[in-house]
């Protein structure tokens, strides 16, 4: 079953069971279940409106959960307020990057160290981020709103690295970027994963996402339609037809 690239571990970091979320009368998630194991890159692919962002928002407790459970490292997140989810070890790169355009690059990074006391650890995080993204170091005193789209996405990932979670959630990091930049960002994600961070990647860009991930789930209108290793999904005729352009 398991892809040879997949890290051999049974340690489930995140387990989502029968998750239901709705916005008023619109039901966005209708009972999805999936899990992410330590060291994996798992991708959730699906068309626009399938419920990918809602899934990540539910994990970060930004939207109310109707039913179901989200267990992170053995703790049910339903009782955790949003700003404490990240302190438990989850960093979330939101859809549309969510950078603070009215803050400088440096301030965006600094804010992401909210609640962290260990100055040495913070210093190391800066060094790591600036070595991964030298362009951010060059522009650290610029307002983040003046960065290009690619740079903003780098800043969004850098901010998540400053938070230093063990699980990183990414919501369409390739959105609106030129292919060369997408490759750059995905290379960094591979590096981050190799250094020990588990990744849950949401993408419409199924081809790129499946190339990067060990396993994947296909989300269709709020339900999980398919699951498997990346290779299995890439070979699946339905996936080929609907998500990989034939």
């Amino acid at each position: 079953m398991m892809d040879d690239r997949s890290p051999m571990t049974d340690d489930v970091v995140l387990s989502v069971q029968d998750l239901h979320v709705s916005y008023g009368v619109i039901s966005a998630l209708r009972g999805i279940s999936f899990e992410v194991r330590r060291g994996e890159i798992v991708t959730l692919i699906g068309a626009n409106g399938a419920g990918k962002s809602t899934t990540l928002r539910a994990i970060s407790r930004l939207v109310p959960i109707q039913q179901g459970s989200i267990i992170f490292e053995g703790v049910d997140l339903r009782a955790v307020p949003p700003h404490e989810v990240t302190a438990m070890g989850i960093s979330h790169v939101p859809e549309g990057r969510g950078i603070f355009a009215n803050l400088t690059v440096q301030e965006n990074l600094k804010l992401a160290t909210w609640g962290k006391k260990d100055q040495r650890e913070i210093q190391q995080a800066y060094e790591r981020v600036f070595s991964l993204f030298p362009r951010l170091a060059e522009r650290r005193h610029q307002l983040a709103g003046t960065l290009s789209g690619g740079e903003q996405q780098m800043l969004a990932v850098a901010r998540a690295l400053m938070r230093g979670g063990r699980l990183m959630l990414l919501d369409e990091p390739s959105m609106g970027l030129a292919p060369v930049l997408v490759r750059e960002i995905f290379d960094v994600l591979r590096e981050i994963n190799a250094a020990g961070t588990t990744i849950l990647l949401v993408e419409q860009n199924a081809r790129q996402a499946l190339k990067l991930a060990h396993r994947g789930y296909v989300l269709e209108t709020g339900t999980i339609a398919l699951a498997g290793t990346s290779q299995e999904l890439m070979d699946n005729p339905r996936v080929k037809e609907a998500y990989l352009g034939g």
Partner: peptide, 10 residues
């Protein structure tokens, strides 16, 4: 909506 992701208690 992004501030809590940084740990900021809005």
């Amino acid at each position: 909506s992004t501030a809590p992701l940084m740990g900021v208690p809005v």
